[in-house]
Amino acid sequence: MVSIRVKDLRLIYRVRQKLSLAPRKHRMAKAGGNIHGTGRNRYVTALDGISFELKAGDRLGLVGPNGAGKTTLLKVLYGIYPPTSGSVEIEGRVDALFNIRLGFRPEATGRRNIELRGLINGWTSDEIQERMDDIIAFSELGDFIDLPFKSYSQGMAARLAFSIATSFKPEILLMDEWIGAGDEAFQEKARGRMMEMTENAGISVLASHNNTLIEKYANKILHLDDY
């Protein structure tokens, strides 16, 4: 049974003053969120006191202004950022739909890009081959699939990225904004695929600025404040 339990989650990271030969005033890396301390001891509190529990069937909407930590929380749940304190217990395989164009190679064909993206996602060769026809069909690329990615229009590239990113059946799905792609006809098809994914996923979490969408989509809402 899939579940997510987050208790007193806190994420604080040090804004490291990089060892550098540059003049002292140019050394500090850029930082956002809440910054505490000065000089070498500057810390950003990205998340503080976050607790929630989700069970199978839950759809959580994350809302809050820019810099409130929505994406950061998603990345903690995905395992990219390690929490500073508190606990994150997750049962089930976590998949994420953010930065769906990451890793696309302009010189490689669409078909090769499906293989590469599949490998990056951790799919086996069999899983890639299993999903290949469905991805190509859904993207509506036809014979273009064997042409280099760089020859695609923006819409075609977006359709391929969307088709790959949504071709699996996730247990736990994390989304940073609702994704869509292509022209109006494809947008409608993409909306259907997204709804199907979130309904079939054991748990899904969506971060968005679109309150109407969140109210329609989520059965639980978590407000994050930029304090």
């Binding site: 990345k75 995905y78 395992g79 990219i80 953010f98 930065n99 990451l102 890793g103 990056i120």
Partner: peptide
């Protein structure tokens, strides 16, 4: 950087 901040590889 993009891979490190966008995947769990």
């Amino acid at each position: 950087e993009n891979f490190i901040k966008g995947t769990t590889l």
